[in-house]
Every structure is written in C-alpha cells, then in structure tokens.
Design a protein around this nucleic acid. Sequence first.
DNA 1: GTTGACCTTCCCATCCTGTCAAGGTTTACA
DNA 2: TGTAAACCTTGACAGGATGGGAAGGTCAAC
Lengths: 147, 147
Amino acid sequence: MNIGKAAAASGVSAKMIRYYESIGLIPAARRTDAGYRAYTEEDVHVLRFIRRARDLGFSVEGITGLLALWHDKGRASADVKRIALEHVATLERKIRELQGMVDTLKALASHCHGDHRPDCPILADLDGPTGPGPQRTGPRQRGIGPV
Amino acid sequence: MNIGKAAAASGVSAKMIRYYESIGLIPAARRTDAGYRAYTEEDVHVLRFIRRARDLGFSVEGITGLLALWHDKGRASADVKRIALEHVATLERKIRELQGMVDTLKALASHCHGDHRPDCPILADLDGPTGPGPQRTGPRQRGIGPV
DNA sequence: GTTGACCTTCCCATCCTGTCAAGGTTTACA
DNA sequence: TGTAAACCTTGACAGGATGGGAAGGTCAAC
C-alpha cells in the first residue's frame, strides 16, 4: 500500500506519516524498487493508534510512551493508567488557565457599556489595573500563548 | 531607559520586546549613539498593556486590534467589547475540546485496573474502538495539538 | 584600566502541520 | 504506443511565540 492509501486509511496525512518516520516515532517503511514507501495493514493499525492518541491531545513524546506500552504485551496496566492520568492533569491545568482568562474577560465585559461611548473598563484594566474592578485570577503567571 | 530596564518594568522579556518591534506590533525604539534602544515610561506602559493582553490569551494579532482601539481615544466601547467576547468564545471552544479529551480519558481510566496485569481498556480503545466502552465525544475532529 | 553587566545582530530550536516546487513513477485511457 | 492525470519522492519554507546562544560592542563601577 502506498503512502496515500495508508494516509486515507489511517486518517494521518502523508505529510505527517513521513514526519513521524523522520523523528523515529514509527520505523522507516519498506521501499518499493521505485523508492515508494510501502505499508501493511498492521502499519495502518499503528497509524490509527497514533491518530487516536493525538485526538486525545497526547504529544508525540507521550505517544512514544504509549506505543512502547502498546507493543509490550507484558506491560502493567498501571503504567498506562498513570500516563493517562498525568495527561488528564495536564489538560485540566490548561483548562483552569483558560477558564481564568474567560472569567476575567467576562467580568470586564460585563462592566462595559458596549455602545458608541469610548469609555471601556476592558481597556482601562489592560491599561493598568488601578481601581477596584474585577480582580485577576490568582497570582501573575505566564500566559499560555495564543489560542 | 535601556531594554533590560524596560523589560523588568513591563514584564515583557527583552527578547520579546525586540520581536514585537520586528513584527511591527510596537514602533521601533529610539536609539542612543551607541545603538542601544531607549524607552520611555510611556513605552513601558504600552508593553505592560501587551503583557496583560497576552496573559488573557490574546494573540499578537488580537493585541494589534486592541492597541489600535486603545490609542483611538474616540473608539466605541462596543468595538472593544466585541473583540473581548469573540475571544471569550474562542477560549470556551478550546475549553470544550480539552474537556472532551479529559472526559474520554477519565472514562477509559476508570475502567482500567491499574495493576500489574497487562489488560488495559485505554490501550484497547486506542487500538481501535470495537466494543461498547466509553464513546468519543462528538464527531471525529482534528486534535488541537499537544498540550 | 579592568571587569562584569549590559547591549547589539544573527542563527538555531521548539512543535506540528501545511504548502509549494521540481522531478520521477504508475495507471488509465485513447 | 503515447499521453495525461494522479501519485510518489525529497527538500525547503512558513507559522506563533518564545528561549537559547554566539560573537562582538558599550557602559558603569571599582
């Protein structure tokens, strides 16, 4: 099976399959005489596994660990569960960060007339919180980047 | 004021100040004879504004819009409010995606013994959901990337 | 005058994904 | 058989926001 077929069958783009191969997440595929990568159903199976894990927000590094356990038929389920729950904790931390932003923005917006007048507590707060107004959630922390 | 001072006073790293200048988010700073960038209190004020907006998860693009409104003393507060609420919607969409992952993972983990035995419904699901088991949240969608 | 802290520019890396280009291969069809 | 379309290959570049480091110039304190 060529890479295009494998991509369609697994839901992982051809580009990403090559990328995963280049970083060693998956072994280098067998090549045809013409140099085309050739995939088996089993390879597609692995790619689907990777795709599902990505959908659950696992990083490539996390997937590396999951794949190792997946291939290790004698693994302890505790190891898998630990990785999953650690990931849950990471996701929940991120959710709390985002929720803090949402809360702050909503509080600011609720005090904004939202009409033609220029006065706006949202800008006033960004300007430098001097008055009472809605408080920021928790201690100053690095942003989590653009969303 | 040198860039280091401005960075410390605003909470934006020197590295990022130069970057913001390079992409045009802030105007190029005046230079001393030696070529050092020189900042005023007003510049620091702007940088603090940017820093606060970043903490609220605004992208550089979003901040560009906010800065324009901030500088426009005749702006309508409705414009600011709209940007803020659009951003809230974006954040909430992201939160829902992450929460869906958390729900799925928790459901899978709750069915995992988490002991020395190799059987693990988490891997079984990633393997290819064949049985009933916890359902994925909503239609198949692109992952949101590593977290 | 020396030393250390600061500044400059430029390059590289991250992380995952997409796009484009230039060229070779396979397949389908007239 | 010829040709066109669809596929494959590698490589490069992009993005978004940030950090790190190297090589070299400048300033301030002692």
